[in-house]
């Protein structure tokens, strides 16, 4: 089977004063650190049994969520998967709301009615996290169809993993977007493993999304998903194309998850040394070096690190102090009238 290795590092190879600019670079760094620390905290709280159920962490994949969110505009819509904490936080949803949801507290994003796999914040453009593989690909098409129909300028972004590329809804949805030139961007986070099985074991091509793009008349786009600058630049182009009415993009980002598929998975199926090799290409490490190469002082990064640590700590304390969700919401919002009555 085709072997995918980490892309070669290019830290420090870019000229100073490039297209991205100082403010955006600091935003990208800050976002990645925020996502890393929030996920690490979620993991710790799981180990302490303060978070129940399951969780699917994005540790190691932060550059994708950060690079995409930094390129999005207010009003653009995110459609995430059950591995959606990072994409939700990246759109500006407060850490407390996300941790609170994971902990089943009343301050949670959906007051505990959705849980880790269904984070949704319409006010931030996060139109849901979908836990059935591939279901949200056609749904994102529908939101993009509405934008096209109404003449609105927003773009819908649909995130999914490598495993999604083998389910029917993936092919139905991307075909549908392509024939109608819908303003939607499909972002495949190829972290090399579906759940436990390597994606390479179950596909006849090397790259599960990029190598299938031609079937829908789309450009083959394969990028380093651990370099936030690369992600950001690629997304800017895709969004511009979508807003110009030129249709969807399918972008495959190569990355690696540092933890297992879910809380239950210690990821022992990995070959020895693979994780260490990818950790050399840790997106945050890459980005810190990048900033240094642009002569950002260490103190700037240290100040951001400290600010993030305080945000995570404060959010954790707030969630631990928050009441558990009141049981009176058990029967609310089944139907649009606010209740659950299915008969008179």
């Amino acid at each position: 089977m085709a072997k995918v290795t980490p892309p070669a590092g290019k830290s420090g190879a870019l000229p100073p004063n490039d297209d991205i600019g100082e403010a955006k670079r600091l935003e990208l760094y800050r976002l990645q650190v925020l996502l890393r620390e929030a996920e690490q905290r979620a993991f710790d709280l799981f180990l302490q049994n303060q978070i129940k159920g399951t969780s699917h962490l994005s540790l190691g994949q932060e550059a994708i969520a950060a690079g995409c969110a930094a390129a999005m505009q207010p009003g653009d819509l995110s459609f995430c998967t059950y591995r959606g904490h990072a994409h939700t936080l990246a759109r500006g949803v407060p850490v407390e709301k996300v941790l609170g949801e994971l902990m089943g507290r009343d301050n949670g994003l959906m007051r505990g009615k959705g849980g880790s796999m269904h984070l949704t914040s319409v006010e931030h453009g996060v139109m849901g996290s979908y836990a059935i593989i591939g279901a949200h690909i056609p749904i994102a098409c529908g939101a993009a169809w509405r934008a096209q129909y109404k003449g609105a300028s927003d773009v819908s972004v649909c995130f999914f993993g490598d495993g999604t590329t083998n389910i029917g809804a993936f092919h139905e949805g991307i075909n549908y977007a392509a024939i109608h030139k819908l303003p939607v961007v499909f972002v495949c986070e190829n972290n090399l493993y579906m759940e436990y099985t390597p994606i390479a074991d179950v596909i006849p091509v090397k790259y599960p999304a990029a190598d299938r793009a031609s079937a829908y008349g789309l450009e083959r786009i394969l990028i380093d998903g651990n370099d936030a600058d690369v992600v950001y630049r690629t997304m800017l182009k895709a969004f511009a194309k979508a807003r110009a009415g030129e249709g969807p993009s399918l972008i495959e980002c190569l990355t690696y998850r540092h933890s297992g598929h879910s809380r239950a998975d210690p990821a022992k199926y990995r070959p020895e040394g693979e994780l260490e090799k990818w950790k050399q290409r840790d997106p945050i490490k890459i980005y810190r070096e990048r900033l240094k190469s642009f002569d950002f002082p260490d103190e700037t990064m240290a100040a951001i690190d400290a600010e993030i640590k305080k945000i995570i700590d404060d959010a954790t304390t707030a969630c631990q102090a928050a009441p558990t969700t009141s049981t009176d919401i058990l029967f609310t919002d089944v139907y649009a009238d606010g209740g659950w009555a299915w008969r008179n």
Binding site: I137, P138, I139, C141, E172, G173, N175, Y176
Partner: peptide, 18 residues
């Protein structure tokens, strides 16, 4: 197209957004 998942998924995304 003969894509029942695309039909219902697209309807849902459109319904969710207006």
């Amino acid at each position: 197209p003969i894509s029942e998942q695309a039909i219902l998924g697209a309807a849902m995304g459109a319904a969710m957004t207006g």
